[in-house]
């Protein structure tokens, strides 16, 4: 990509969040500052409860009340924004709509003509590899296919930034690897700026240009790891030596945080 050296598409400036609960304040995210370039693929990895989903919800606009600022193309945004699209961890395909009508959904809400939205939706279904399934309902499709519907639906708004919150968490390992390759291919094809939340280290290494390791609560960026594997990537690289080194390096940093998280969890449950 030639235009890598542009101004950042997404800029987080001292973004932080405290939840007030009846049991006192909980600092979920310590100030995070981050620039993401056009076409870049960023992963945020961290233990459960590190605030990575909170951070994602802030960028996606679902949480509007936070400290600091979020800028898209240099313009400060707050709340849901059409330049930022989100894919969720849970099943989110509308079960009462066919694959095609799931993808047309946001365009329908925005009042785009039927002809245009169907055409665009067919292109997107092709992009995610669901040709021929456009008239099927989600219940007739596999979990991986349903998640691809959700991705296509989010892309229907042509967001500048694609946020994915553990989109493969509910899938089995093999489906997850194949879907990772698919996401990479889409990201390359559209030069799509992407931010992924995951707790799968291999997945983060396979997909990302940069991996951000978050600490356990309160969440802050503990370290940034540049993934210097060559492009185009694919799941076939998993056996490589460099791949293994990167996974090991990230685990080194993550281990401590994960065990803190586990201890906290056991303390709360026990």
């Amino acid at each position: 990509m030639a235009d890598v050296k542009q101004a950042p598409v997404l800029r987080l400036k001292d973004v932080a969040k405290t939840f007030v609960t009846p049991h006192g304040n909980v600092r979920a995210v310590e100030p995070v500052t981050l620039d993401i370039r056009q076409g870049e693929f960023i992963s945020i990895i961290g233990p459960s409860g590190c605030g990575k989903s909170t951070l994602m919800n802030i960028v996606g606009g679902l949480i509007e009340d936070y400290e600091g600022s979020v800028e898209v193309d240099g313009i400060q945004v707050r709340g849901c924004h059409k330049e930022v699209g989100m894919v969720f961890q849970e099943e989110s395909a509308f079960p009462w709509r066919t694959a095609l009508n799931n993808v047309t959904f946001p365009m329908e809400a925005a009042g785009i003509t039927k002809e245009e939205r169907v055409q665009r939706a067919m292109e997107l279904l092709h992009l995610v590899g669901l040709d021929g399934f456009e008239n099927r309902f989600p219940a007739e499709l596999s979990g991986g296919m349903r998640q691809r519907i959700a991705i296509a639906r989010t892309l229907a708004f042509r967001p500048r930034i694609l946020l994915m919150d553990e989109p493969f968490a509910a899938l089995d390992e093999q489906t997850r690897l194949l879907l990772g390759d698919k996401v990479l291919q889409i990201q390359q094809e559209l030069n799509q700026t992407t931010m992924l939340i995951t707790h799968n280290i291999a997945e983060a290494v396979q997909l990302s240009d940069r991996v951000l390791i978050m600490s356990f609560r309160p969440g802050r960026i503990k370290r940034v790891v540049e993934i210097d594997l060559p492009h185009p990537r694919s799941s076939k690289m998993m056996g490589g030596e460099r791949f293994g080194q990167l996974v090991a390096a990230i685990w080194e940093d993550l281990r401590e945080e994960a065990s803190k998280g586990l201890q906290e969890l056991e303390r709360v449950r026990g």
Partner: peptide, 14 residues
């Protein structure tokens, strides 16, 4: 109604 479906709607500015 699953909260995630409502969130989908919110992210699409419904």
């Amino acid at each position: 109604v699953k909260p995630v479906l409502l969130n989908v709607g919110r992210t699409f500015n419904l």
